[in-house]
Design a protein around this nucleic acid. Structure first.
Length: 568
RNA sequence: UGGGGUGUAGCCAAGCGGUAAGGCAACGGACUUUGGCUCCGUCACCGGAGGUUCGAAUCCUCCCGCCCCAGCCA
């Protein structure tokens, strides 16, 4: 049923490693986890990771946990954990009862730290932030030992417990791993494990004034949960020796960390920091603005979970940094929406058409197919009358050679209805703007069929009966940024200056066929010839419908125009 | 620069010594009551230079590009 969107898993280097582990007995099961920090909303890059981790667990009959890596009280918030949970669920994955928090491991982590102190593998350091930086050295020069590096175990134990007890001011002391200040790997130069920070934690309240660093918490959290494969992004590869060191010194379960390249999508930014900046700076309406690459943004825009999952499958997993073309994501939504979205007729920018030889007051109904890709979707009736709306861009007074639509003297088909011929163009005498088209119809073409004389037309237009139409607001979106890679800017240029001023266009007064009056929030439709649209889950109200354009249809005509070949 | 990664078509990405998968995009065509869908076709000598080999994208050497690490962020 859903095999088109969920094809057999593509093999990748991570699966190869897992297969090898299973074959050699390194592990006898597969247990992964998705470990976000609740300091922002999930974006499409996270979706890649979620699909990878949960997908692996699914395909290997294993488990995948959801764990909040909440080790920094300053930026984390319950709002974010709620959104994360909602987004993961919406994407279609289930962590069952395995909802974990690094903040639940604080006590255990503290015990681990005490163990390392006792082993002589960690020490309390009094160096200030600046001093620590200075002692660390640079990438080309070795660091030097902290003067506190050789404190006795007894003193370290005493100091550490007093740190926890709140005897020292913020930043006065840290707990550091005693590794190697001359290591070419900067992360091994006695990294910090704990900092004193009197900060209210959204879950632990004021229970702690000592907070573990991510580097100290992450590997142990995976170990505690029995994770076998800790999959993370490339930038953590240099951290792996550190995580391995902690795990080995502790002598606990040792997951295998595997790194892969994070996702970059063209024409947008994919970092929580920058997305936050867009939200806080008012450049977008919020985390769920339909232009945002967040999961909630895509959801509001009308993307389906299926299409995002299929995108994740298609892009693959590798180790080189890359920027995936947004067109690939669009292809994935179109592919799914084409199969499931019911067709409907909607005129975005209406132009009045009067059928002069059609009796006033007469209404006919035509049967329209709901979805040519799905016979079970059935048909519906659409009303037709003397006055209609058609798309403004479907008429040109002086058309280029390849324009097949309506123009003076030309005949086209109105979908499911009749052939009509443009007999007269009515204009506003002042502005010269076309205000109305007066056409005639051919009764022999009822239903849109070709007439007995075999006459053909080159175009079929969508339309809505003027007296039956309902109105709606339609929001049209384009890419958030004008350039493929907003991060690739000359020195001194603000990446936000590359935001696309046309990323949102609001169209009011669109005319829809009457059946759409009951369209439910989040329902997705194909407006024939115009694209896929979704009822806005936040702003749409009965009687005041708001639609978001999810994605346009492929458009050969638009391509001809933009490439200047319309006259060829 | 010390260390760690990575370079296959416009964009992703297979390939693991035997003579370049697939997808997207693009282009051409068929079909068409959505200029939609579908279908057919076209589109690479693998960062560079040497070397090993009967044979190399795959092995070796050197060079070049790009990414990550000098937060008490994750």
């Amino acid at each position: 049923m859903d095999e088109p969107t969920n094809p057999k898993p593509k093999s990748n280097f991570i699966r190869d490693i897992v297969d090898e582990h299973l074959r050699t007995g390194r592990f006898s099961r597969v247990h992964t986890r998705f470990p976000p920090e609740p300091n922002g909303y999930l974006h499409i890059g996270h979706a890649k990771s979620i699909c990878l981790n949960f997908g692996l667990a699914r395909d290997y009959n294993g488990l995948c946990n959801l764990r909040m890596d909440d080790t920094n009280p300053e930026t984390e918030d319950i709002e974010y954990v709620n959104s994360i949970k909602e987004d993961v669920r919406w994407l279609g994955f289930d962590w069952e009862d395995r909802e974990y928090y690094a903040s639940d491991y604080y006590e255990k982590l503290y015990e681990f730290a005490v163990q390392l102190i006792k082993q002589g593998d960690a020490y309390v350091c009094d160096l200030s932030v600046d001093q620590v930086r200075e002692y660390r050295g640079t990438v080309t020069t070795p660091g030097k030992d902290s003067p506190f590096r050789n404190r006795s175990v007894t003193e370290n134990l005493d100091l550490f417990s007093r740190m926890r007890a709140g005897e020292f001011p913020d930043g006065a002391k840290t707990l550091r791993a005693k590794i190697d200040m001359a290591s070419p790997n900067m992360l091994l130069r006695d990294p910090l494990m704990y900092r004193i920070r009197r900060e209210h934690h959204y879950r632990r309240g004021d229970a702690w004034c000592l907070y573990p660093t991510y580097d100290w918490a992450h590997g142990q959290s995976d170990s505690i949960e029995g994770v076998t494969h800790s999959i993370c992004t490339l930038e953590f590869e240099v951290h792996r020796p550190l995580y391995d060191w902690f795990l080995d010194r502790l002598g606990v379960h040792h997951p295998q960390q595997i790194e892969f390249a994070r996702l970059n999508l063209s024409h947008t930014v994919l970092s929580k920091r920058r997305l936050l900046e867009l939200v806080e700076g008012g450049f977008v309406s919020g985390w769920d603005d339909p232009r945002m690459p967040t999961m909630t943004g895509f959801r509001r825009r009308g993307y389906t979970p299926e299409s995002i999952r299929s995108f994740a499958d298609i892009i693959g997993i590798a180790r080189d940094n890359s920027i995936v073309d947004a067109a690939l994501l669009e292809m994935c939504v179109r592919e799914h929406l084409n199969r499931m979205a019911p067709r409907v007729m909607a005129v975005l920018r209406p132009l009045k058409v009067v059928i002069t030889n059609f009796p006033e007051g007469r209404v006919e109904e035509f049967e329209a197919v709901n979805n040519p890709e799905d016979a079970s979707a059935g048909t519906r009736k659409v009303p037709f009358s003397r006055e209609l709306w058609i798309e403004r861009e479907d008429f040109m007074e002086d058309p280029p050679k390849k324009f097949f639509r309506l123009s003076p003297g030309r005949e086209v088909r109105l979908r499911y209805a009749y052939f009509i011929k443009c007999e007269e163009v009515v204009k506003d005498p002042k502005t010269g703007e076309v205000t109305e088209l007066r056409c005639t119809y051919d009764p022999a073409t009822r239903g849109g069929d070709s007439p007995p004389d075999g006459r053909k037309v080159k175009a079929t237009l969508h339309w809505v009966s003027a007296s039956h139409a309902i109105e709606a607001e339609v929001r049209l979106y384009e890419t958030l940024f004008t350039v493929r890679d907003p991060m690739d800017v000359p020195e001194g240029t603000d990446w936000k200056s590359l935001l696309n001023p046309k990323s949102l266009e609001v169209v009011r007064g669109a005319k829809l066929e009457p059946g759409l009056a009951d369209a439910r929030p989040e329902s997705r439709w194909q407006f024939e010839r115009m694209g896929y649209y979704c009822v806005d889950r936040r702003d749409s109200k009965p009687g005041a419908l708001v639609f978001n354009r999810t994605v346009t249809l492929r458009d050969e005509w638009a391509k001809l125009v933009s490439s200047g070949r319309e006259n060829k």
